[in-house]
């Protein structure tokens, strides 16, 4: 069964390749932009080799789509302008799909979405599902990010919301005892609060949050120029395959101990 899927996808890839082969891009290198470092998605090893979840995923997608790919490093500020200026052909750098960005670029299907989580002290008895019991507690959040929007919309009357410039500031004030709760993106919480280690004073409370989509978004996707529909379609098909044949799960397990698949 698996073999037939493989053959089918190979055939599909061939048929989509045919019109492409006639176009100007024949044999050309697909340049993919990435903002390094963003551990563990993309970073350099001690000997300078570029690696990470998205690097390996990107390589797997290119192999699957039979494309020759190379990586281009680009800082985040100019990453969309650089794509539009043809400095590279795709962005694979944890870019979340947003309506503003959709006006400028063409997105593939999303390939990951990290959950947002509540973090509390281990010695506190906070029941996150009982909204009434949260009254009067203080929550820290990074100013203006999607979790701020979520809290402002659903918890403005219940919790006192403190907004900080960076996640590190949230962690500092958490440690100082000014906060009862923090809401963060899972990998950020892991990085700044290190709540999975046994001697950490913090723990995750409640499940990971990904809804509503209106706030938390559709997830991160590969971005292309709007006219490169064929290239995007190739990546979509390759993505579908690596998600099903276990490549994606293998990479996810290698870099994360939580679920980011979507």
């Amino acid at each position: 069964m698996k073999k037939t899927i493989h053959i089918l996808s190979a055939v599909l890839a061939c048929t989509t390749l045919l019109p492409q082969a006639a176009s100007a891009r024949e044999g050309e290198n697909v340049r993919i932009a990435v903002d390094v470092p963003y551990t563990p998605f993309e970073y350099r090893t001690a000997d300078g080799k570029l690696t990470g979840f998205e690097i390996e995923l990107g390589d797997a997608l290119c192999a699957e789509a039979k494309l020759k790919c190379s990586w281009v490093e680009q800082s985040w500020d100019g990453i969309i302008p650089g794509l539009l200026a043809r400095k590279y052909d795709a962005i694979l750098s944890s870019m979340s799909i947003t309506p503003e960005r959709e006006k400028q670029v063409l997105f593939s299907e999303p390939y990951y979405l990290t959950p947002s989580i509540w973090v509390a002290r281990k010695d506190s008895a906070i029941d996150i599902d009982d909204k009434a019991s949260l009254k009067g507690l203080t929550v820290g959040v990074q100013r203006g990010d999607i979790r701020d929007n979520y809290l402002s919309e659903f918890y403005a009357d219940t919790l006192t919301i403190r907004r900080y410039a960076t996640a590190e500031d949230v962690a500092t004030d958490f440690e100082a005892g000014r906060l009862d709760l923090a809401m963060m993106d899972y990998p950020v919480a892991l990085e700044t609060l290190n709540f999975l280690s046994p001697d950490s004073p913090y723990q995750q409370v409640g499940p990971g949050i990904r809804e509503p989509e209106r706030i938390f978004g559709k997830g991160a996707a590969v971005a292309f120029r709007k006219r490169d529909k064929e290239l995007a379609e190739k990546f979509n098909q390759a993505l579908e395959t690596v998600k099903q044949d276990g490549t994606y799960d293998r990479l996810m397990k290698k870099y994360f101990d939580y679920d980011i698949k979507i």
Partner: peptide, 12 residues
């Protein structure tokens, strides 16, 4: 300024 910063980062 905090309010301005909030509006800025929320609506870019």
């Amino acid at each position: 300024t905090g309010a301005a910063y909030y509006v800025y980062s929320r609506f870019y």
